[in-house]
Design a protein around this nucleic acid. Structure first.
Lengths: 119, 119
DNA sequence: CTAACATATGAATAACTGTTCATGTGTTCA
DNA sequence: TGAACACATGAACAGTTATTCATATGTTAG
């Protein structure tokens, strides 16, 4: 039994040159990490719904809360995340904060995702 | 003190008509949920890295493990997820499974994300 | 058939994430 | 100045997720 545990491809080193070549083409780890962080934002249905709503119109926090039937606090927490990634912006009018999409990359990203689903 | 806790916009109902109109434009909840699930896949740096690697070349599991310096098991688990979302496919050659991207939506989605980061 | 090996997978654990609850902040109006 | 309100935020809790470890599966060579 005495397993000397061949971790993976220990003997053959199947495609070591290819591995090196591909490695040299990869974006830096930090960039990949940031990219994952960005997609993580889209990976929550509450946030997706907020984004789709803002695609239609600028809305205030309580509009969003009503629209989505979740608490004001939950919406506010998520808007904070979206703000942090520069996906939404807001303007103040008295007590009310009106949120809107920061740019139209949001739409592009959402559309690409939809394309993959509906084919 | 006796808070009757005005949940949110209780009195004014600021933009109730607008809320209804926006609601009617939103995709179905189930679609939004599926879309979030898809983006969740992209929201992990291990999986992002796998996808970028496969963008360069078809690779076997242990190539990927070496390339990314993670365990074979971790790669295998993630490939399972990617397979489940039809983002990668594979072909068998003897004992070795070669993975590749399922289609070029993957590239489109990654590129849109990159665009948002690098502007 | 059996040993070797590439890969898959189930269980367990640690880290992370989203919501709720309670409360704080900033603005308006009287 | 103080009450009312829209919104933000910190702490806590529950649910989710990625990795590791151990082991199982499926294929090849002898």
């Amino acid at each position: 039994m005495e397993s000397n545990q061949p971790l993976c491809c220990d003997t053959t080193e199947i495609h070591m040159d290819l591995v090196e070549q591909v490695r040299s083409q990869l974006p830096q780890d930090e960039i990949l990490y940031d990219l994952a962080e960005l997609f993580k934002i889209f990976g929550d249905s509450t946030r997706i719904k907020i984004l789709y709503a803002l695609l239609e119109s600028e809305l205030c926090v309580c509009d969003l809360a009503k629209l989505m039937e979740v608490s004001q606090s939950a919406v506010s927490h998520q808007l904070r995340v979206l703000k942090g990634s520069k996906l939404v912006k807001f303007r103040r009018e008295g007590k009310v904060l009106y949120y809107s999409l920061a740019d139209d990359h949001v739409l592009s990203i959402l559309n690409q995702g939809m394309d993959h689903l509906t084919e």
